[in-house]
């Protein structure tokens, strides 16, 4: 008996340590980012850093304004959401409510596969297919642009939007749908007027998750966006917050390197905000 109790305790302890390990990592990253992100901001000045429109880190007279990156990230994410959410949402309604079981199984497999494709592959396909196509279609000198990045991001966020929305839609009690059908509503009316409103916080969570994925993506957008620190414009080469860090880190030093940490800190704050929003919706879904 006593031995059992000791084993219980030991196991309890092991799990606690493993749990704390995760928490510790988050804490460590947060502290590290804050400590290493602050100096550059103090030196450059918060306002000049966040709202400066010119990033020229290697110029003789360097300038560290990250507004182009912030706006590019926001526009890119918003564009991806604008494009990806309607497609993902209707796909989720179709798969969870209308599709016959065989089609559903097949398409769900495809969606999972889409989720599993490494982002560098998205980037590669985007680079070799999408970028030249955009150049041809819109008759611009370089297809590597915000527009191309938006398309790639929209496709990349589809799986999370479809899957999370589907889970929410499938969790809608069948009784609600039966009641609607028994009142003479058609199945499609029922899905859009009863099931979707009942699943709305789950669908909102799906959208927020998509925002999180889009804003955090680096590799794929670096390969299709041209990676030039311009103020964002749909058919111009742009640079995102993520790619700003990734593209200069390997050769940076001094204030330039510190500024990259500050960019990472800004990105981190964005992600924190998105996570808080996500938790809000998930909690609402539970109630």
């Amino acid at each position: 008996m006593k031995k059992n109790k000791m084993i219980e305790r030991a196991i309890h302890g092991v799990f606690l340590i493993l749990g704390l390990l995760t928490f510790g990592c988050v804490l460590l990253i947060t502290i590290y980012l804050v400590i290493s992100g602050i100096p550059a901001i103090t030196e450059i000045g918060l306002f000049d850093f966040l709202f400066g429109t010119k990033w020229a880190s290697t110029a003789d007279e360097p300038s560290y304004g990250i507004l182009p990156f912030i706006l590019t990230s926001i526009y890119g994410t918003a564009g991806a959401i604008l494009l990806g959410v309607p497609i993902g949402f209707f796909a989720a309604v179709y798969l969870s409510k209308l599709a016959n079981p065989k089609v559903k199984a097949f398409m769900e497999g495809a969606v999972s596969l889409l989720a599993g494709i490494p982002s560098v592959v998205y980037g590669l396909v985007g680079m070799l297919v999408l970028v030249p196509a955009v150049r041809e279609i819109f008759n611009i000198p370089d297809g590597a642009s915000l527009f191309s990045a938006i398309i790639v991001l929209a496709i990349m966020i589809l799986p999370s939007i479809i899957k999370v929305s589907m889970t929410a839609l499938e969790a809608v009690p069948k009784e609600y749908e039966d009641a609607s059908l028994a009142l003479g509503a058609t199945p499609v009316e029922t899905y859009f007027r009863v099931s979707v409103p009942a699943a709305k916080s789950g669908i909102a969570a799906a959208v927020v998750l998509g925002v999180g994925r889009a804003i955090g993506e680096a590799m794929a957008v670096m390969m299709v966006s041209g990676n030039v620190p311009n103020m964002p414009s749909l058919f111009q080469s742009v640079r995102f917050l993520t790619t700003a860090v990734a593209s200069e880190m390997s050769y940076s030093s001094g204030l330039q390197q510190q500024a990259l940490f500050s960019i990472a800190l800004v990105l981190f704050l964005f992600i924190m905000l998105i996570n808080a929003t996500l938790n809000f919706f998930l909690k609402k879904e539970k109630d």
């Binding site: 009690p173 009784e175 609600y176 039966d178 009641a179 609607s180 028994a182 009142l183 009863v194 409103p197 009942a198």
Partner: peptide
Amino acid sequence: IGMVFQKPNPFPM
């Protein structure tokens, strides 16, 4: 031909 179910099932509205 309307129907009332076993478990009360008002819509969440």
